[in-house]
Amino acid sequence: MTSPDRGAAPLFTDPSANAARAWFANKPRALIDKRTTVRDAVARLVSDGAYLAIGGFGGDRLPTAVVHEIVRQGKQNLSFAGHTATHDFQILCAGNLLGRGQTLARVEIAYVVGLEARGLSPHARRVMESGEVEFTEWTNYALAARLKAAAMGVPFLPIRSLLGTDTFRYSGARVIDCPFTGERLAAVPALYPDVAAIHVHEADCYGNCRLRGTSVADLDLARAAKRLIITCERLIPHDEIRRDPTQTVIPFFCVDAVCEVPFGSYPGNMPYEYFSDEEHLRQWLEAERDLVTYRAWVEQHIYGVEDFSDYLHRCGGLRRMQQLRQQELLLDRPG
């Protein structure tokens, strides 16, 4: 095999650390109340053509309300970091091929189209096989390292995967020689998304955030993103943050909007709060099989819905949330 020294793919964002510094130089630092609605946050912070990244791990700790709102507002021509994207990618794909333009235009793929053990999304496949979306290949760690480089404020990081594969060939990575040891490394460029959304357990009105369970790539994502929308299960008093600052994992100055969205990861899992709604996810996959059924499904669950609270209501409301909470806490089985 000929082993190319540079991947052939274009980058959809500028990896320059100086360009990023120029942006961050002007990012507001004031300790101001950033509480708002998801509708307002998406309208203000997600522009057509923007590069978007979503926190969590596919269907785990997913900022579902923001993803729905992006589709509902008909945002167009987005680039997307397909970093362990599962249900989030599935929702975004509802903005393509259903007669409402094209939400997704470019995707940097580590993992898309699949919903892990649940199977492949028929509509996401349709979108990715249609030719209307430009895509390039990465890996989960490559994208995590790209976010880490951005969070560090450097233009790239060296990693030891990707090498020797077609995944490298269709990525935008480069091979470099280590200046100290001469070892071959893959250099992956910093990724500064225009906008990111992350769902956390608790936040204060300024955007200081706490989360429980695995952080996936979110601590780096929060620092790498130029604009950041936080949704939280619960707002907490600022005094509580001050009482125990060791629990803060994202500081307020990274954050542009704070939206309290109880059950905000539904139908995804939220650690220590509620389990994923496997029945709803199964029905969603089922509805995607043909376009007519799926158009009706999307109408019923996204476009024809007032807001996320209305969506929860349509999915069984508090009664369903109570069941999922019991599942999460393993209380749904005989003692």
């Binding site: 969590g56 596919g58 269907g59 892990e116 989960n140 899992n269 650690p271 393993l330």
Partner: peptide, 30 residues
């Protein structure tokens, strides 16, 4: 306690010793 459904769901750190980041796991491998 049960088979996880997702590589990131809460079962994957149920009574674990640490819930950390993807980079931490991958770098432990690296």
């Amino acid at each position: 306690p049960t088979m996880p459904i997702s590589v990131g769901d809460s079962r994957t750190f149920y009574r674990g010793v640490m819930a950390t980041s993807m980079a931490d796991i991958m770098e432990t491998c690296q």
